[in-house]
């Protein structure tokens, strides 16, 4: 015992100053930066990397577009569903809860496939039927004018990108709904009561009193989900949408250069998520600083 103690003490006192300093260095970040520098350098100087980078950068654009549009829609869906989850109207409440529970209970990949190959085709059939119905109502100009295009929507023409956006938005909408619900419910009851007793309607109180406070609280989880969606958007490669992951797969098949291809893909994803995370942090700080 005593000897052991003496030994540890000795080691500590002798070696401590620079090992402690070494322990404090964020090695993981340094290594990451080095890899980043290596890949950036390769992109500029190696033919293979350069070629891969050019091929994948189209996918970066699609990934960003896909994520931004899907997340924006998911926020709207989430906010509306979140209101449904706290609604006193049992029909509204049950519809919202059904959606949230179903979506949260199945894998995102299955949701994407289901939306793309079941929901959208069914919706198109519905549109066709509605269109034909309008056309058949009579030769009258306006009805036919609206009905014709609806009747002629072809499932082949519904771009996979749109189906992917729809799928991602529906998948994430359920999670954002729970984020909004929790945020709204975290505002103490007295706030709603004070607003209502001044004569505001429920929606006025929501708009001017509850939501401005709730938004501040839900910003961090929303930010996390945004980054998570950027990563999950790789799943839509299963729909052959030409986003980053899909183009990486294509590039590998084209060049058989797995190492360079996936290094570049990883590099691009990391660059995007890092930039996004920092952006989210800055936004959070700005919002909480404004009081």
């Amino acid at each position: 015992m005593a000897v052991g103690e003496a030994v540890t003490k000795k080691r500590k006192s002798k070696v401590a100053p620079w090992t402690q300093a070494l322990e404090r260095v964020p090695w993981w970040a340094l290594i990451l930066i080095l890899i980043g520098v290596y890949i950036s350098y390769s992109i500029l100087n190696s033919e293979t990397y350069h070629d891969t980078f050019l091929f994948l950068s189209e996918g970066v654009k699609t990934t960003i577009l896909l994520t931004v549009v899907s997340f924006a829609i998911a926020l709207v869906v989430g906010l509306i569903t979140g209101f449904g989850r706290i609604s006193d109207n049992i029909i509204v409440y049950n519809i919202a809860t059904f959606y949230v529970e179903v979506v949260r209970g199945i894998p995102l990949l299955i949701q994407l496939l289901y939306v793309a190959f079941v929901v959208v085709p069914l919706a198109v059939q519905g549109l066709n039927a509605a269109g034909s119905f309008l056309v058949n109502l009579g030769p009258a100009g306006f009805l036919a004018f609206v009905g014709e295009p609806l009747a002629n929507v072809n499932i082949q023409n519904v771009n996979m990108l749109y189906r992917a956006i729809f799928g991602l938005a529906l998948g994430y909408g359920a999670y954002e709904a729970e984020v909004f619900r929790a945020g709204i419910e975290s505002i103490e009851r007295g706030q709603m009561e004070a607003a209502r007793s001044l004569g505001m309607s429920y929606w006025q109180a929501m708009r001017y009193v509850i939501l401005p406070q709730a938004i501040r609280r839900v910003l961090p989880p929303l930010g996390n989900d945004f980054v998570a969606m950027l990563k999950d958007s790789s799943l839509v490669s299963a729909l052959a949408v030409r986003e980053l992951t899909q183009l990486a797969k294509l590039n590998r098949a084209r060049t058989f250069r797995s190492f360079e291809t996936y290094n570049t893909a990883v590099f691009l994803y990391l660059a995007m998520t890092l930039v996004l995370s920092i952006g989210v942090k800055v936004l959070e700080r700005r919002m909480s600083g404004g009081k």
Binding site: G190, Q191, E193, A194, A195, S197, V209, P212, Q213, R216
Partner: peptide, 13 residues
């Protein structure tokens, strides 16, 4: 009808 609560319930934002 004005009402004043024990806990004030001012809007903190």
């Amino acid at each position: 009808i004005g009402i004043v609560f024990q806990q004030f319930n001012l809007f903190p934002h």
